[in-house]
Simulated scan of single mutants.
Amino acid sequence: MADALAPEELNTYFALMESVSLLHHAVEQHLRAEGGLSYVQFQLLARLADAPERRLTMTELADGVVYSRSGLTHQAGLLEQAGLVTRGPSPHDQRATLVTITEAGLALVAKVLPGHIEVARRLLFDPLSDADLRSLGEIMTRVRDHMRAQPPRSAATRKRRAPGA
């Protein structure tokens, strides 16, 4: 069994997790109220709006938003039903599905983004000095890069069910 976390590690871990939960809850409330979107749906639309040619493969989206393949397929289907994205085969790889944001999707991102920024600024950035912001940015970039050094979940092999299971 691994050693227990030291008190400072435990306090830091819980402070981080509580802060992330509080921020995520506030952002989710804003996105639902202003755009009828979940946070994951907003992430997908924002990534597509920022992508070259405003489209990405499902694998690129899954890796970028750290979401399960099946969950992503479901969310993309909901966004497609709402007219916010289109899905189709990639002309370069028949196994890949391209997701493209529509004009309606771009308009929705433009509608919710100012409030999203306001929530993030008010809850996350306002209590920080410029030096705090630089330090936090450097620390979180290092932590994220360490976590991302592992193979992306979309690259992991899927477990096969036993026949008849």
Rank of each mutant, 00 (worst) to 15 (best):
Q81G: 03
Y67G: 00
L113C: 05
A49T: 09
L16A: 15
Q43T: 08
R69I: 15
H25C: 01
L44E: 00
G105Y: 03
D63Q: 12
E103S: 13
E53V: 06
A49S: 15
G88F: 07
R122S: 07
A76G: 08
A51T: 11
D63A: 12
L45D: 05
T102I: 04
G77S: 13
D50C: 09
S38I: 09
G77I: 11
L124V: 10
S90R: 06
L84T: 04
A46Q: 06
L78F: 06
F125G: 00
E18A: 06
E9H: 02
V85P: 01
G105V: 12
E60H: 12
Q29A: 13
A110E: 15
Y67R: 07
V65G: 04
A26F: 04
A107D: 09
V99P: 01
I101A: 05
L84K: 04
L45K: 06
V66D: 02
E60L: 07
L37E: 02
R69K: 15
R121E: 13
L48M: 03
Q43V: 08
G64V: 03
E53R: 12
L113R: 15
T100Y: 04
H25E: 13
L108N: 01
I117R: 14
Q81L: 05
G64H: 03
I117H: 12
T100V: 06
D63E: 11
R55S: 10
S38C: 04
R122E: 10
L98W: 01
H30I: 06
L108D: 01
S70R: 13
Y39C: 07
A96W: 06
V65R: 01
L23F: 00
E53M: 03
L123E: 05
V119E: 01
S70N: 08
P52F: 02
H30S: 14
R87I: 00
F14P: 02
L108T: 01
P89G: 14
S90N: 12
T102Y: 02
R121H: 12
Y39L: 15
G105T: 10
H116S: 13
G64L: 07
R55A: 05
P114N: 10
L16S: 15
L113M: 12
S68M: 14
L23R: 05
R121C: 11
G71H: 07
S38A: 10
T97S: 11
E53Q: 13
K111Y: 00
I117K: 08
S90L: 06
V66I: 12
